[in-house]
Design a protein around this nucleic acid. Structure first.
Length: 578
DNA sequence: TTCAATTTAACGGCAATAGG
DNA sequence: CCTATTGCCGTTAAATTGAA
């Protein structure tokens, strides 16, 4: 029987991916607007970067800025199109950066572009990513004037490769040739080797939040219904015409972890308008709701989103736990809710930063937090921008891999996971019949999964909790950062332990089941050892330091600030205890 | 409410080690 | 000698806390 997508699903899919004709139209509109043929307020929001031509850029390759690549990597394929001021196009291959590995470089085909545009050292080029793998390039000379010789440049080869039509293709290309290529190759290689020696599998528990589970709880029918209804209302496609996809705001620019707003200052009238629009919507909502105007501390730095005390007490959990924030496009972000009894300033902590960045929140924007599920604490966030459209912004902003450790974890999960996308960590160990020392793989080689099934499987193979020393962070005497030109040092020694679930004696039946269901070869662990290395000089230093600290505990107990709460794991590494 | 200090945890880099 | 593996060290982003 033929299965057909329902109307709403089809519309959402088209809104998301577009179709060929629509893409062409959309691209054309964007290009027109960015060339000034047609005024479009959204044109300045397209991701772009500026490059001054150097000798290297003239002779061989051009490197994209790391920050640009970081924010737009999913939109840059192996082959990209450069559209010059003449509107002619050049096909250029993109390679991982040879100097700055987190960057990407224009290589094959770039020389042709340089030659055809008669580019010289000092020329300045503005690259605007107008659609996936499609850059519009403006060329200026050293004085800042548009370069006349580039205005009518002709592609001397006219062998433009087809532009990627689907994002999935682009992502595939990026995975093959992008900056993550090395990681993939390395991991793939490792998997092959591990398989060859029949690794033992140990399952490690991990929370959903840690692994960036971005889907709302399945039982959240209330939210589904709300979003579904609103999508239908929002989408003119119900009458047969598709909605014109609104361009999304460009990702925020970060400096030192803080957002550097690229937006002009907001007028009092605009603030008032956004607030009124939010209040108007709030008045129509039947669920518990809270209207909040964003401040710098919420969305630019710190990212500590404190909620109104009355609302918190009435509707938020009276304990610290994970909640789910959703935007109107239906995407969700797991966010840590920190309940503080002492200061009465409970709020969103871990995860809120990602939500704020992904949804391009800015100061003076107004959020209406609508509690759509008080059982699972699912909150729908309606966004009203101080600058821009007067109505609610229902832009299709999605959880991004972001930056930092969570980002890498998500990226790795996407690349490596041999299971489905929702399973717990799988840790590979050598089997005991290898002559090399048995030892744990390092965290960076862990597989990440998060399903209840995998957790059950872990128990099935007889896993038990095991404390395993993984890392010891010692910052004593090291310069941590600069504070007003003065070096600030830390006197703390901290250690952290991974809590793993391992098994010394799993049943063969359980292992077979696990092997069958995970498609991984596993074998009982005969010897579970962590060989210790020779004592190094730094280790000696730490040992001495540990002794010293034990003798000076009284002195250490008087830090600049009050002592940390008992829950904190401030301790000297077990290996340092004397 | 804001913000700086502190803690936590991921992971890159490197060196030691083992095996071919 | 080369390659693969793995433990340790150090850095850093993100999370958390409490004082101002």
């Amino acid at each position: 029987m033929e299965t057909k997508a329902c109307t709403v699903c089809s519309m959402n899919c088209l809104k998301l991916h577009g179709d060929e004709d629509e893409d062409a139209d959309r691209n054309k509109r964007m290009l027109d607007s960015s060339r000034g043929r047609k005024k479009d307020a959204a044109s300045h929001l397209l991701p772009s970067f500026l490059k001054k031509m150097t000798e290297v850029a003239i002779k061989s390759k051009l490197q994209m800025p790391v920050s640009f690549v970081r924010n737009s990597v999913t939109r840059i394929g192996k082959t990209i199109i450069l559209e010059g001021p003449s509107t002619n196009k050049w096909s250029v291959e993109v390679w991982p950066g040879s100097v700055q590995k987190r960057s990407l470089e224009f290589r094959d085909g770039w020389q042709k572009f340089v030659k055809d545009h008669n580019l010289q050292i000092g020329d300045q080029l503005c690259f605007t990513l107008t659609s996936d793998s499609h850059f519009q390039v403006m060329v200026y000379d050293e004085s800042g004037s548009q370069k006349a010789s580039a205005m009518d440049a002709i592609n001397s080869t006219v062998t433009i490769k087809h532009e990627p039509k689907h994002l999935s293709k682009v992502r595939s290309d990026v995975r093959t040739k992008g900056p993550e290529a090395r990681l993939k190759q390395k991991v793939t290689k490792r998997i092959r080797i591990k398989s060859a020696v029949k690794p033992t599998v140990v399952v490690v528990h991990s929370s959903d939040s840690e692994l960036g589970n971005s889907e709302p709880p399945e039982k959240d029918e209330n939210l589904k219904e709300i979003i579904s209804k609103e999508k239908i209302q929002d989408c003119p496609g119900m009458d047969g015409s598709l909605a014109d996809p609104k361009p999304l705001l460009a990702p925020h620019i970060l400096q030192g972890g803080h957002v550097v707003s690229q937006r002009r200052s907001v007028t009092p009238a605009e603030k008032e308008r956004a607030l009124n629009a939010a209040r108007d919507l709030a008045d129509t909502l039947t669920n518990p709701k809270l209207v909040m105007v964003m401040t710098k501390a919420y969305v630019y730095k710190g990212f500590w989103m404190v909620l109104n005390k009355v609302f918190s007490n009435a509707h938020m959990p009276h304990e610290s736990r994970e909640v789910t924030l959703c935007n109107k496009a239906g995407h969700s972000w797991p966010v840590k809710w920190l309940f503080k009894t002492t200061t009465n300033s409970s709020g969103f902590s871990g995860g809120w930063r990602g939500f704020a960045l992904d949804n391009r929140l800015e100061e003076s924007d107004v959020c209406v937090f609508e509690m759509v599920d008080e059982k699972y604490f699912v909150i729908l966030v309606h966004l009203f921008r101080a600058i821009g459209q007067p109505s609610e912004d229902a832009g299709d902003y999605r959880p991004s891999p972001g930056r930092g450790r969570n980002a890498n974890r998500r990226k790795r999960k996407a690349i490596d996971s041999p299971l489905d996308t929702r399973c717990t960590k799988i840790k590979l160990f050598h089997s005991g019949d290898l002559k090399s020392p048995a030892g744990c793989s390092r965290a960076k080689y862990l597989y990440h999964t998060q399903s209840q099934e995998a957790e059950n499987l872990a128990q099935m193979v007889g896993c038990s909790q095991k404390q395993q020393k993984d890392t010891c962070t010692a910052s004593h005497g090291k310069v941590l950062h600069q504070d007003e030109g003065k070096e600030v040092t830390s006197t703390a020694i901290t250690s952290s332990c991974d809590t793993d679930f391992t098994s010394d004696n799993p049943s063969s039946e359980a292992l077979e089941t696990f092997e069958r269901r995970t498609a991984l070869q596993i074998r009982p662990l005969h010897a579970f050892q962590f060989p210790r290395r020779k004592t190094g000089s730094f280790r000696d230093y730490l040992m001495d330091l540990g002794k010293e600290l034990v003798g000076q505990q009284a002195a250490m107990a008087a830090p600049k600030r009050s002592s940390p709460p008992a829950s904190r794991k401030t301790q000297i590494s077990p290996s340092l205890e004397v």
